[in-house]
């Protein structure tokens, strides 16, 4: 005859142990909705920017100034696109594992600021807003991206919180 009490005890022990390991008492960080929204914006903006880098590099967007890419801007776009992509991947990995996010975010922030300064100093004389309107729109709105990165850096929660036991 089946011993119902023993079976129940076994099941509850197994389930209790499993729930202890996998759900109850699990420590993780719940980021705010502002963080998630801003982080999504950063990802979207960076991805569109990278795609645009390569579209402009491939000369797939019609522009008014055909000598736009003859000023050495081509190699710059290429390397910047690759570096930004690597940094974006690192940022997402750091966010997923919640390890070193602030540092990767800071590195990306510094990189974006530096490239903005470089572009302003080196290429301001060669390019105009009307050369590639789509590209210029992203150059003009870059401060938004930098502010978003800075904001995410500030509001990110590093420390783990215990979730209330159910």
């Amino acid at each position: 005859m089946k011993n119902k009490n023993v079976d129940d005890l076994e099941f509850s022990t197994i389930l209790g142990h499993a729930s202890d390991e996998h759900s109850i008492d699990k420590n993780y960080v719940v980021q705010s909705s502002t963080f998630r929204l801003t982080f999504s914006f950063i990802n979207l903006y960076a991805l569109i920017l990278i795609v645009l880098f390569f579209i402009v590099k491939g000369n797939l967007v019609e522009g008014i100034n055909n000598n736009f890419l003859d000023t050495g801007f081509l190699s710059v776009l290429n390397t910047r696109g690759i570096l930004l992509f690597i940094l974006l991947i690192s940022l997402n990995i750091a966010a997923y594992f919640n390890s070193g996010f602030k540092y990767v975010c800071l590195i990306m922030l510094v990189y974006m600021l530096n490239s903005a300064i470089d572009n302003a100093v080196l290429f301001s004389g060669f390019m105009h807003l009307t050369d590639r309107p789509y590209f210029s729109a992203f150059s003009v709105t870059r401060p938004l991206f930098i502010i978003a990165l800075f904001w995410v850096f500030i509001i990110h929660k590093d420390k783990k919180k215990s979730i209330k036991k159910v």
Binding site: G72, V76, L106, V110, Y111, S115, D118, L122
Partner: peptide
Amino acid sequence: KYFTVALTAWAVAIYIDDYFVLSEII
């Protein structure tokens, strides 16, 4: 530590810029 990491990142970024990104321009 954040300020030092930012400065280090900047130093590395301008080094990479000078030798790999802007090598044809500057």
